[in-house]
Amino acid sequence: MLSRTAESLFWLARYTERAGNVARGLGVAIRMAGVATRLGGEDAEWRSLLTATGGDAGFYRKYPAPTQDAVVQWLVHDPDHPSGILPCFEAARRNARAVRTALTVDMWEALNDGWNHLRALPPEATEGERLPDFLGWVRERVMLFNGAAQDTMLREEAWRFVHLGTMLERADNTARLLDVRHHLLMPDGEGGVDYVHWQAALRSVSALRAYHWVYHDRLDPRRIVELLTLRPELPRSLIACYAAVVELLDGIALAQGGRRGECHRLAGEIHARLRFGRLDAIFEQGLHDFLTDIITRTAELGSEIERFYIRA
């Protein structure tokens, strides 16, 4: 496959997944904003969302304070923020158009129809009480795209690069969302104020119900960390994402007669740490250090994949 085609497939999936993650994060932040002042630290929720979405420096250059309106503008509309919802859809559609023949009709329509809808979106559709509906729509579009890819793509190289993009982006997102609340997820943490944050952490990866299903018990920070990092059953856990990443990279290598590079080694190493690591060890190292390391290595892996398959 042409390297450029692989690049576009990889990135259109990353941008699409990112748009869904931002929508999920915003939805949780809106819920939290209602109780934020009581939890101390005005705008704390908006600040942590900005940190989690990784564009906080750009935000503060442009907006005086992280008010709800400013953050929504930044994360939904602002063309200067490449990880915002609209720019993500735009970038995904642009990449899709460049490799249209590599996509199935259903995937193209999921992206193109979504983009056409957003283009014609009246500004009030993302304001006030209508914002949650809009965020729900974004998540649906992303699920539609993922479903279209899952259901209609041949299981060949094109599929592997699309899914690789989705999974790598998802791993990065889970690590970041967990990291912004790491100080509230101490193993000896008590309920009370922190409890709301624990809920929020789970909600932001759509895992609150999953938690209860898996543990049949009250929320506990150790288990929350375990669920989001080491439990393979949760589709957004770090290990679930990395298991997929390793499998996809292996599949590509196999189809190319076993050609491998640093990206394969690195993915395997990260996966092995998650697979054979112990929860205690994570807390001994410090959750923040552990997550920062995962985030850095995930970025490194992205570069290595590009170096090996795209810029070679």
Partner: peptide, 8 residues
Amino acid sequence: FMRTTAGP
């Protein structure tokens, strides 16, 4: 050469 995922 063209750049492909399997090399040039």
